[in-house]
Design a protein around this nucleic acid. Structure first.
Lengths: 218, 218
DNA sequence: GGATGTGAAGTCGTTCACAGCT
DNA sequence: AGCTGTGAACGACTTCACATCC
């Protein structure tokens, strides 16, 4: 295999393959062919092979792929063989909802455990501390936003989750960049700009709803 | 303009344009060129023009687009000129979080108002009714899942939100299809299959996190 | 003059089809 | 014989470049 630029769609599918493989592993399946995996993930078999071929030769001709091996390889590729420490900024309604969701992740076993929110921030921390604490498990501390730089360093936080109103998203992103997180997951429906070298991914479910609304309006 | 298949990416961008145009309208801007809009949305100017050209000729050569007109046109295209009535199935942690988020939508003005959750369902309704009711505004009723067909009809529900554990996602989808909703927004990280004519969109933020993790692992 | 609308070119991703291993 | 790995064909989306119109 030669080096090539890897399509983003490939990475998204890898994530899907890993979910399917986890399920297969639980069912005690040892070997899987590209056709079977493709079938389960609703993609083309050649697509599966090509996606994997970007990263190496994981299969055995005439046989298929060993489920456990392939799963481990994909997890390594995706960077899921470590714990990602995250901070959440904006503990309003959406923020506190997500906080409790991520807390649940660490207790519920059908959810991945690779991501952990280890601190949260707001302009007005006291107003929300009660609500966040009430949930099961150790509550996530809410700091004042001006503590962000030191806490990110202290707690070795690599990812920031922006859950503020859209008007604040860019300035929060600037703070996160300054605090030297490596990536941002942006839930605020606003385009944010970060310097070269930082990564931002958007989660706008209103956009997806709009998409659905469009499809249903025909 | 001739008829052509419209790329899904075009629809997603339309949603983005509409957000930008809303902002511009609030700022009192009357006219916008494709270059300005493109700049604001971080896309190519030709892309903006091509996206719009799929649906008609909305601009004036030598001038640009009237902000208000274009916004109205885009909203009409996306089907945002009506209220979408939704049901949420699975009032666990994620579900109740989303419920309160959508409830907030109807009170907070920086969030769109086109989507409204008018009923929710669970296998064990009583366990959660308190938690959902506590939030501001009129609480969303929680019904037993076996009431789904009649409630969907009564309340004219068109979209179902699946927020159950992944293991239940497919059977819930089957129920929604039987109850004759038109589309599904699936938050449960599992591939679901629906008959021809139904639309499903997935919102897996673990997938997006995995994507981010991959980018940060290089 | 200036910005749109659009065919044509270019780029990127997917699918095919088969050579190459086991 | 069977399934992977991969060059080549295909298709889809994006960008360019310019004719068109205000």
């Amino acid at each position: 295999m030669k080096y090539q630029k890897i399509p983003e769609a490939t990475i998204r599918r890898l994530s899907r393959y890993s979910r399917c493989l986890e399920e297969m592993e639980e069912n005690g399946e040892k070997v899987v062919s590209s056709a079977q995996l493709a079938n389960k993930c609703i993609v083309n078999a050649a697509q599966v092979r090509k996606d994997l071929a970007y990263f190496g030769e994981f299969g055995i001709r005439g046989v298929g792929y060993y489920v456990r091996d392939l799963l481990n390889n994909i997890k390594k590729i995706l960077g899921l063989n470590k714990e990602w420490r995250m901070a959440l900024i904006g503990v309003g309604n959406l923020g506190s909802s997500l906080l409790s969701y991520f807390q649940l992740m660490t207790t519920q076993d059908y959810l991945k455990q690779n991501y952990k929110v280890v601190a949260s921030f707001d302009i007005d921390p006291p107003k929300v501390i009660g609500r966040v604490s009430e949930k099961l498990g150790k509550p996530v501390e809410v700091f004042h936003i001006n503590k962000i730089k030191e806490v990110v360093k202290e707690r070795r936080i690599e990812i920031g989750l922006i859950t503020t109103p859209p008007s604040e998203a860019q300035s929060v992103a600037d703070l996160l960049v300054e605090a030297e997180v490596k990536g941002i997951l942006n839930f605020a429906p606003a385009q944010i700009i970060v310097p070269e070298g930082f990564e931002v991914k958007d989660v706008f479910f209103t956009t997806i709803l709009d998409n659905l609304a469009y499809l249903l309006s025909n």
